[in-house]
Design a protein around this nucleic acid. Structure first.
Lengths: 256, 256
DNA sequence: CCAAAAGTGTTTAAAATACACCCATGC
DNA sequence: GCATGGGTGTATTTTAAACACTTTTGG
């Protein structure tokens, strides 16, 4: 069985390929149907959901590892990525989980780099939900989006990692208009507002939001309005990358 | 020679004691004579100054490693510490430096965990300058404070790590009144202001500064004034930890 | 008594917040 | 035509920034 051989190799020889003791975990945020979502993997046999993660190749830039992991799970390139925290508690051991996993799947291994302690580097990613094709890795049974307000049971400290990621994202939102990375090429003001409200977890004033957003100068209104929608049709906007870069230098404003 | 043996052991057997591929580097800030300073080490033989750093013991919490490293260099316990960034470029190799170092010192080693790639976790520390007794480690010739505006040539990417630390400190200063960690038990308002000005790299209005600071409610004015000083004697203040913790929850203000 | 630094205001400008009105569209 | 959501504008409050005067102290 090809899969078992691959797995055995990973456990017995992975340390020749990857840096020991270091893993990368990604909190992938997407926005869909007015809800902020996170992409999670269901581990085979071993119960519980997990953040997509991986390891750093011996000659690979750490940021590139995160990009590679994201590419594999979402199919996307050049994702917005932000390293936000390192989790270095010696008790966050994956040993038990890994041993349980191998036992269940019927692979033997007594010692393995995978049983050793891991320090994990947390990244969060902001992706365009509509562009993502979630695909599980070979040790996972499923790869699905979850609302951040209805997360399932998660392995290890992954829920804690998620919490930190969300907190960092909220902070970031006050300085850089990172929200745009979660939307498509064009979007309406109400959509953008919903996004902000979902991330921040609170409602914002519609009129003040629009004024502030436009004041940043990083939005460009299109002549097009949203079609086939009840009530007054909202305009589409697009994100003006050039002005964005200029605005970044002079600092961004915060939201309520 | 005891030292050479220790060193040889470190290079040949250190990987049994520490996590491979991971180092910790600390940017230690101190405030003295109206100047923000950083504690640096002069490496023996290999030229250039370096940030105090070290490795994570196999069963040690990452944060504890940083505390241990700081204790060794400054003599202080329970230092204010903040993990701010991980540097994971595969090119940031210490191999050449280490080999040069060993050659110069006359120790032989062909392979060593120390020649492998390191991902380093950056911490910055805020310490009370007057409490610190700088002491070099056994591979360093000197341990000295430098003004952040007159830094010497530094090895590897240490200058870049410093830059990131300073940038993070400035950010942090807008949300948490971290400045207090750099001062002693009591301090005058002008001293506190100088500190802020030095960190932020710009002048602040004396009167507005005082008002804002007092508005946070985390300062307590003592009945004591500074003695033996020309002109009007400023009051001493102390930092009110209890109110500080309360204030943190409701968020802090920014400075100009 | 005067220069220099510190304490305590006030005035002005800007930004955040709250709120009101009109317009378009589908049912 | 009316309920609903969207575009635009104004009043109010809050906060930041600019500025002035008085007080204390050593020389």
């Amino acid at each position: 069985m090809e899969f078992k051989k691959e797995l055995k190799d990973h456990y017995s020889k992975g340390h020749e390929k990857y840096l020991r003791h270091i893993s990368v975990d990604c909190v992938i945020f997407g926005f869909h149907e007015n809800d902020l979502k996170v992409l999670l993997l269901k581990t085979k046999y071993a119960g519980g959901w997990a953040l997509p993660g991986g390891f750093i190749l011996k000659n690979e830039h750490m940021d590139a590892s995160a990009q590679r992991i994201l590419k594999e799970r979402t199919g996307l390139d050049e994702i917005f990525l932000e390293q936000f925290h390192v989790f270095g508690d010696p008790d966050r051991s994956t040993k038990k989980i890994n041993q349980q996993f191998l036992k269940n799947i019927g692979v033997k291994a007594d010692i393995s780099w995978m049983f050793e302690r891991f320090v994990t580097i947390g990244y969060y990613a902001l992706v365009d939900f509509t562009k993502v094709t979630p695909s599980p890795d070979n040790i996972s049974a499923a790869c699905e989006w979850f609302s951040i307000y209805q997360l399932p049971e998660m392995i290890l400290d992954h829920h804690h990692i998620f919490d930190e990621a969300l907190q960092n994202l909220r902070m970031q939102l006050n300085f850089h208009p990172v929200g745009f990375n979660l939307l498509g090429k064009k979007f309406t003001m109400p959509e953008l507002q919903k996004l902000y409200e979902t991330i921040l977890g609170k409602e914002l004033d519609r009129r003040n939001f629009q004024r502030k957003m436009l004041a940043t100068g990083i939005l460009k209104r299109l002549d097009e309005t949203k079609k086939g929608v009840a009530h007054k049709a909202p305009f589409y906007y697009k994100f003006d990358l050039r002005n964005y870069k200029k605005a970044l230098k002079s600092g961004m404003h915060s939201f309520e």
